[in-house]
Computed example of a mutant assay.
Amino acid sequence: MARYLIGLTGGIAAGKSELSRRFNALGITVADADVAARAVVAPGSEGLARIAAHFGPGILLADGQLDRAALRERIFASARERQALEAITHPAIRTLLRETCEQADGPYAIAAIPLLTEAGGRQQYPWLDRILVVDVPVAVQHARLLRRDGISAALADRMIAAQASREARLALADDVVVNDGDPDHLQAKVEQLDRRYRALAAAAKP
């Protein structure tokens, strides 16, 4: 069981997935908050039952799956409804992430949490021993979004603005990986961090 837990975060198009893949290739379990978010609203889950109880049975598709389009319309039309959804899903996501990390093989595990800063940082995730931020300048985020998603510059601006600021994320960081160039340069940094985290895990109390 992993005794040392790392939180990985970063802004949109910063390179969290690439970093996760490289840690995973070194044998490190990476628990993904996006995967956890889908799991806690899967058919038959307590989370989906609570969502249906709050929003009504019309929020479900005929096959019992969550109607994500209908839910999206509801929560973007009402801050209160969005908060109600978050109150149902966020605690369950945090619990699942922690359980996945703690049960992982290896000396440490990583919880990849894109909205760690927005979700309350260390206050909501006190079980994280360390926070790793993958960082890029806003101009690089913007260019990557245009290239990756084929969207307008205005939409890219709105997507970046909807997240926490770069400064707010960096304020949480114990470690920072700057990913503003060729992704191949990331490997040396990941291997360096892997050695550091293994040493920290070995020094942690059992």
Rank of each mutant, 00 (worst) to 15 (best):
V140T: 15
A111C: 05
Y125R: 03
L146I: 11
Q163F: 00
Q163Y: 04
R82T: 04
A153L: 07
A119G: 08
F76T: 11
D63Y: 12
M159N: 03
V134P: 00
A69Y: 05
Q124V: 06
G56S: 08
P137L: 11
A52L: 01
A104G: 03
D149C: 08
A109H: 02
D184R: 15
R144K: 14
I113Y: 02
A52N: 06
A52E: 11
R94N: 11
A171E: 14
G121F: 00
I131W: 01
L48V: 13
L115H: 01
S78K: 09
Q103H: 10
E99K: 12
A154P: 03
T95L: 14
E73D: 15
A112E: 10
R72C: 13
L170N: 11
A154S: 08
A143R: 13
A92C: 05
D180C: 05
H185G: 13
P57I: 05
D129W: 05
G58E: 11
A168Y: 14
G106I: 01
R158I: 05
L132D: 00
D157F: 06
D174M: 05
L172Y: 14
A87S: 14
R82F: 08
A111Q: 02
D157A: 15
D135Y: 05
Q83P: 07
L116Q: 00
L116A: 01
Q83T: 08
A92G: 06
T100I: 07
H142V: 06
R195L: 14
F55P: 00
A188D: 10
T95V: 13
A69F: 04
L97P: 00
A109G: 05
E167L: 13
E99P: 04
V178T: 09
D175S: 10
Q187H: 12
G58T: 13
L96M: 08
A171D: 13
W127K: 08
P114R: 01
L155E: 15
L85E: 02
D180Y: 05
D157L: 09
A143G: 10
A161R: 11
L85K: 01
T95K: 15
D157G: 09
L146Y: 10
I59W: 03
A53C: 03
L186T: 08
A112P: 00
E102F: 08
T89V: 15
Y125N: 12
I51Q: 02
V134I: 15
R82H: 09
P107S: 10
D105P: 11
P137I: 08
G181D: 15
H142S: 11
A154T: 14
